[in-house]
Simulated scan of single mutants.
Amino acid sequence: MEFLQDSIPMVSLAAAAAALYARASSSLLRPGFPRLVALLPLFPFLVAAPLAFTSSAIIRATIAFFLAWLCAFKLALLAAGRGPLDPALPVLTFLFTALLPVKLRQRRGGAGAGAAASTKASKPDLSLVSCAVKAAVIAVILRLYQFNNQLHLYVRLAVYGVLIYCFLDLFFPCIALAVGALGMETEPQFDRPYLASSLRDFWGRIDTTKSFAGPWNTR
């Protein structure tokens, strides 16, 4: 694993190779125990890959979220013949779905207002003012972390929550734009979760069952 040490390009290439192996092996094996056995060697890599980043806790946590959590569960669902992954998907579609926290929108036939509204709804909101505000908030919080030991526990937790939200609300639309540049559409991850009136409403607005394809999502 030394060749992966603190190298985002090398880890990305290794993860892509693992996803391509998963696609190839799954196309040859039926869902169930044989496919699970073929995919098992990938799980130790997905868990260990984030540990290659020793210089940055943020990068390590982000890679762990992508690979050790999301990708691992997606492959587990693939072994059972469920979830967002399918060996019949095109290579790029399979890679993006496996390695990134997105769910690609299924294109359906038909035109008109419904199709136009669907396309409009799938476009990420990346206004310059919103991005500038979130980037400024992140910069202030990172500066504030220098005085982490002097802050009350509840203040630290609140600040951490704001940091995670701003980071994800910037990061996910950027991913959606990159995917959209390749002609694919993604379903939105966020719907103003800060307006949630209950914990159930909060998770519904974040829409993890559709976008993240965690262990609770079967299709």
Score class of each variant (00 low, 15 high):
residue 23 R to E: 03
residue 10 M to G: 05
residue 47 V to F: 07
residue 6 D to Y: 02
residue 17 A to M: 11
residue 34 P to S: 10
residue 52 A to R: 13
residue 26 S to P: 05
residue 37 V to I: 12
residue 29 L to W: 01
residue 30 R to I: 06
residue 43 F to D: 00
residue 45 F to T: 01
residue 18 A to T: 14
residue 40 L to V: 01
residue 7 S to Y: 03
residue 20 L to M: 13
residue 35 R to A: 09
residue 35 R to I: 00
residue 29 L to E: 11
residue 6 D to K: 07
residue 21 Y to T: 08
residue 9 P to L: 10
residue 40 L to C: 00
residue 36 L to Y: 12
residue 49 A to N: 05
residue 5 Q to C: 06
residue 46 L to M: 11
residue 26 S to Q: 03
residue 22 A to I: 06
residue 4 L to E: 04
residue 33 F to V: 15
residue 49 A to L: 01
residue 40 L to K: 09
residue 32 G to E: 03
residue 16 A to C: 10
residue 46 L to W: 04
residue 21 Y to Q: 12
residue 48 A to I: 01
residue 30 R to V: 10
residue 22 A to L: 05
residue 31 P to F: 04
residue 31 P to L: 07
residue 50 P to Q: 09
residue 34 P to Y: 03
residue 33 F to H: 14
residue 45 F to G: 04
residue 47 V to G: 07
residue 9 P to D: 10
residue 42 L to I: 02
residue 24 A to I: 02
residue 15 A to Q: 12
residue 21 Y to N: 09
residue 17 A to K: 13
residue 43 F to K: 02
residue 18 A to H: 01
residue 14 A to V: 09
residue 15 A to G: 11
residue 22 A to C: 07
residue 6 D to P: 04
residue 33 F to M: 14
residue 20 L to V: 04
residue 11 V to H: 06
residue 33 F to A: 15
residue 45 F to I: 00
residue 25 S to G: 07
residue 39 L to V: 00
residue 6 D to R: 09
residue 29 L to P: 05
residue 45 F to S: 05
residue 12 S to W: 11
residue 22 A to E: 08
residue 16 A to M: 14
residue 41 P to G: 04
residue 29 L to Q: 13
residue 25 S to C: 12
residue 11 V to L: 07
residue 46 L to Y: 04
residue 37 V to C: 04
residue 15 A to V: 12
residue 11 V to Q: 11
residue 32 G to F: 01
residue 51 L to I: 03
residue 3 F to S: 13
residue 16 A to Q: 15
residue 12 S to L: 12
residue 9 P to C: 11
residue 11 V to R: 13
residue 4 L to K: 08
residue 21 Y to S: 11
residue 37 V to N: 02
residue 29 L to K: 09
residue 13 L to M: 13
residue 27 S to P: 00
residue 26 S to L: 04
residue 19 A to V: 02
residue 6 D to S: 08
residue 35 R to S: 10
residue 24 A to C: 05
residue 12 S to Q: 13
residue 17 A to C: 08
residue 25 S to A: 15
residue 34 P to V: 04
residue 11 V to M: 09
residue 15 A to L: 15
residue 26 S to A: 15
residue 43 F to T: 01
residue 51 L to H: 12
residue 9 P to K: 08
residue 16 A to R: 14
residue 46 L to S: 02
residue 47 V to N: 10
residue 52 A to V: 05
residue 43 F to A: 05
residue 48 A to K: 13
residue 30 R to G: 12
residue 30 R to Q: 14
residue 47 V to M: 05
residue 24 A to N: 11
residue 16 A to G: 13
